[in-house]
Amino acid sequence: MLFYGPSGAGKKTRITCTLRELFGPGVEKLKIDQRIFLSPSKRKLEINIVQSNFHIEITPSEAGNYDRVVIQELLKEIAQTQQVDLNAKQRFKVVIINEADSLSRDAQAALRRTMEKYMSNMRIILCANSTSRLIAPIKSRCLLMRVAAPNPDEMATVLNYVAKRAPFTLPSEAAKKIIDDSGGNLRKAILVLEALKMQTPDLSGPLAIAKPDWETYCHKVADLIVSEQSPARVMEVRAKFYELLSHCIPPTIILKTVAERVVERVDESLKADIMHWAAFYEVRMRIGSKKIYHLEAWVVKVMSLYKVFIVLPSSA
């Protein structure tokens, strides 16, 4: 099975439900293990594994380039052992592979034959954000389950349910605001609700939803870009990008957030171009190894576009 959909839409929840349905409440007894694998070049890889008697959950992308080794070793080991517990409801074990879309091609190729060969002992559930990066042979072997983000009404129902269980009353304006802010991500919505409840216990009056620090920081960067275009400003922006990168914010997210903010603040005719270059440099960033170059290149590009637009409005 392959579950795919945006984050916070409930993929994990559905997987857990499937497991419970298959094996009963026994799957909830989890233990966390650390396993060590040897890469071909004798490097040690440590991988965290969550497992119960019936299933095992791994995030192979933790191993970076060596994810193929993890997949090969671990799956074969599980596949070649049979379920020993006679009371088990099913004869097979389940392997859950998180972030399947960040698996390398090699690792995905390694999955292909194992999936078929050991059908009787093992079933695989893949969990991914999108199917674009999965190779076609894997997709054709799986039952695809698209998990869409919940719509505002459904989210409101969930938030009200949480409020009822807590228990406190949730004003509808507050609920609406939270839903708008979370953009379909239910996990985020519930966390925001919790944070708000801590700040203002009665949840009435004007609410200020605290944005994550990096988001405000990105917005600041965007404002800097729009307000002045000069080499000095580029240096300033560069320092800020370094700050963001050193706090482990993924460069794609930085680029996307800054670009969205810049687009909000410029003239209609420029918007398409700015997004075009954002997409262009995003790909380069993926292919290249040093992210900061591409972020800067984009900033300079946007600045020059904007400058030209201001100086010669007719040509833009």
């Binding site: 999108s130 674009s132 990066r133 794609t252 680029l255 996307k256 670009a259 997004m275 075009h276 954002a278 997409a279 262009f280 995003e282 790909v283 993926r286 292919i287």
Partner: peptide
Amino acid sequence: LCDGADEELWILE
């Protein structure tokens, strides 16, 4: 997309 670019940005593009 094959190179692993961000989906939303590219659909928008």
